[in-house]
Computed example of a mutant assay.
Amino acid sequence: MNSVCDIQERFRTVIYEFPKLITTSTKLLKATTPLSIPIYITTQSRAKLGNTISELTPYLDASTNPNVRADLDKTLFSMITPDLKALLPTEKPLDAIIIGLETHVCVTQTTLDLLSLGHRVYIVADGVSSVNPEERSVALERLRDAGATITTSESLLFEVLGDAGHEGFREVSRLVKETGGETKEALKAFCGGSKI
């Protein structure tokens, strides 16, 4: 499952490297179709903080994207509200991919909740951010210690593919090539000098 955590309009001007977060998020959302990855979206107090940003909405419309399983507003910091939890498959542990905001608040609490439910959590280092970059690095270290896997968007996509014989390989490979420059810039900004 791909969890899109609170990437909202109100955060656009205050989040560290917000445009780079958007390019990574867009790439991952484009890849959900050939990889058949379900998408769960939340917003934090939508009436106050705005909708999910417009750049992502073409990939998050449940009427045109069958992979969208939920688009919920919340007041809890964690995405794992009772409503969202009720929508999650229960037959086996999930592989949850998290992108969004803010790393040290909503992303952290979502990750801890998913881990406590026995799920595997992959946090995309070039797909999460906070107002203060220092909060981001501390949160990623904490979440790694708690059992989450910290990875990058490109590494994750090829891990999901697993095999060049996968039916989605060409489309995902093309997407990775097309976004190579943007990915490089996002990695420099988010992972360049940190020890995550």
Rank of each mutant, 00 (worst) to 15 (best):
C5W: 01
D6I: 02
D6E: 07
D6A: 06
E9V: 13
R12S: 09
V14H: 13
V14P: 05
I15D: 00
I15R: 01
I15W: 00
Y16I: 05
E17F: 05
F18I: 11
P19H: 12
L21I: 13
T24Y: 10
T24A: 13
L28Y: 05
L29A: 11
K30S: 10
K30I: 13
A31E: 03
T32L: 14
T32M: 15
T32W: 12
T32N: 15
T33F: 11
L35Y: 08
P38F: 04
P38N: 10
I39W: 03
Y40G: 00
Y40W: 04
I41A: 03
T43H: 02
Q44P: 06
R46E: 14
A47M: 01
A47I: 01
L49S: 01
L49A: 02
N51D: 06
T52M: 04
T52A: 02
I53E: 00
S54I: 06
L56F: 01
L56W: 02
T57G: 02
T57A: 02
L60V: 01
L60I: 04
A62G: 01
S63P: 00
T64V: 06
P66M: 03
P66G: 02
V68K: 00
V68C: 00
L72Q: 04
K74N: 02
K74A: 04
L76H: 09
L76R: 11
L76Q: 14
S78P: 07
M79E: 00
I80C: 10
T81D: 08
P82S: 13
P82A: 13
D83T: 13
K85C: 12
K85V: 11
K85H: 15
A86K: 14
L87C: 09
E91Y: 09
P93R: 11
P93M: 11
L94S: 07
D95H: 15
I97V: 14
I98T: 13
I99W: 09
I99V: 15
T103R: 09
H104D: 10
H104W: 05
V107L: 12
Q109I: 04
Q109F: 12
T110Q: 03
T110K: 07
T110L: 09
T111P: 04
T111S: 14
L112H: 05
L112T: 09
S116I: 05
H119C: 05
R120Y: 14
I123Q: 05
A125N: 06
D126H: 07
G127D: 03
G127H: 01
S130V: 01
S130C: 08
V131W: 06
V131Y: 09
N132S: 10
R136E: 04
S137A: 13
S137Q: 11
L143M: 12
L143T: 03
D145Q: 14
D145F: 10
G147L: 08
T152E: 06
E154V: 08
S155R: 10
L156G: 01
F158A: 04
F158C: 05
E159F: 09
E159N: 08
V160M: 08
V160I: 15
G162S: 09
A164M: 11
A164L: 06
G165C: 05
F169S: 06
R170C: 06
R170P: 04
R170N: 14
R174D: 15
E178P: 07
E178F: 10
T179R: 09
G181M: 10
E182C: 13
E182Q: 15
T183V: 15
T183W: 10
K184V: 11
E185G: 10
L187R: 12
A189H: 05
G192V: 12
G193I: 11
